[in-house]
């Protein structure tokens, strides 16, 4: 049994969680996103911008959840793929003048190749080391971005990257939100399919008991590598969404701080649930952009929230909410 699910106590599987209802809930989630985007479009451009960021960070966190929650590989270097994709796409459009439809795939390819190189080393290491080696490797990329100023613009980064043109230029905040919401929905559904597939089940098996999976004849190393490449692909998509949001990429997109933040989003939301990461992403964006306007001590507040979650909802926000919801239903309507 997965230790961080164990912590929620015994959760009896109810018919509520059957496959059909999962599909229904997925559709409900998509409808929810459309509603949120619609509602947001009527707000000012700043709330729209924040909701766009929540979706991008949520996508980024979900990609990390493939590793942390489903494969049991906690990474502290996930910003590497986010940043490499953004840098590569930015360089393609700035230095080579490539259009969006060429630059964006090149960026994603760069992220996947980076993941391949990193994981050839990182996946060899023993349990517990993955976190540290990914941290160190990502730090190498950050160092290059800061010091190779001719290519990367150093800590001033690269700016002036135009937003994609899809039918019409995605200039306004609202039209870009629609674009990101579309990318998010398609990516999220793809990840959902992946974790529900036999491949995803094999990943969970590796997380729970790798020696047993090996004994069953699985080449676990190959599974972990593919999971890493997929995680890098979706992280790259998130990185490019962020690139086009502000037309800017800098070393902060490769920084350890970002890797730590996205890991926190996954852990706080609930590792191994994919959609829990949305809660983590929303909390982070609210803290960084709204709480910081009211108090200089916002980092303390953020730390305290993480500590409280670790203590009182160690499995994350989503299971915690589900449990509350189940209790509420039980108290209201008996056992239905």
């Amino acid at each position: 049994m997965n230790p961080h699910l164990e912590a929620t106590g015994t959760r009896v599987r109810r018919p509520l969680w059957t496959d059909r209802s999962r599909t229904i809930r997925l559709l409900a989630a998509v409808a929810g996103i459309v509603l949120v985007v619609l509602a947001a479009s009527t707000l000012g451009s700043y709330p729209v911008e924040l909701i766009t960021q929540v979706l991008i960070y949520a996508l980024f966190a979900m990609s990390l959840d493939l590793l942390v929650g489903y494969t049991g590989l906690p990474s502290l270097g996930h910003s590497a793929y986010f940043g490499v994709a953004a840098y590569a796409a930015a360089l393609c459009s700035l230095k080579l003048g490539l259009p969006f439809w060429c630059a964006a795939p090149v960026g994603l390819l760069a992220a996947v190749v980076t993941a391949l190189l990193f994981n050839l080393i990182a996946l060899r290491t023993a349990r517990g080391y993955y976190l540290m080696i990914t941290l160190a490797l990502a730090q190498v990329l950050w160092s290059i971005a800061v010091s190779w100023t001719d290519l990367t613009g150093g800590d001033n980064g690269l700016s002036g990257i135009a937003r994609p043109v899809i039918g019409r230029p995605l200039e306004g905040a609202a039209s870009y939100l629609w674009f990101v919401a579309l990318v998010f929905t398609v990516s999220a559904m793809a990840m959902w399919r992946i974790v529900r597939s036999p491949f995803g089940q094999a990943l969970k098996g590796i997380r729970e008991n790798e020696p047993r999976m090996r004994a069953l004849g699985y080449e676990t190393w190959r599974y972990k590598l593919v999971a890493s490449l997929l995680a890098a692909l979706f992280a790259g998509i998130a990185g490019e969404c962020f690139l086009y949001l502000n037309g800017f990429v800098g070393p902060s997109s490769l920084a350890v701080a970002l890797s730590a933040q996205v890991l926190l989003m996954v852990l706080m939301g609930a590792a191994g649930t994919l959609f829990g990461s949305m809660i983590g992403a929303a909390v982070f964006v609210v803290l960084q952009n709204i709480v910081s306007s009211y108090t200089d001590r916002w980092l303390f507040v953020m730390g305290a929230i993480y500590v409280l979650f670790a203590l009182y909802a160690p499995a994350g926000a989503l299971p915690w909410l589900r449990e509350r919801w189940a209790r509420y239903r039980n108290s209201v309507g008996g056992n239905t």
């Binding site: 000012g44 451009s45 700043y46 709330p47 911008e49 924040l50 960021q53 980064g157 962020f242 502000n246 800017f248 800098g250 902060s252 997109s253 960084q288 952009n289 910081s292 306007s293 200089d296 916002w298």
Partner: peptide
């Protein structure tokens, strides 16, 4: 006065510049 922290991160600086100007 409206005071905002960039936290030393250009991405945050851009977002908050938008907030100050548009919101």
């Amino acid at each position: 006065l409206v005071i905002e922290d960039t936290a030393g991160d250009p991405q945050v600086a851009i977002t908050k510049a938008k907030k100050l100007a548009e919101s």
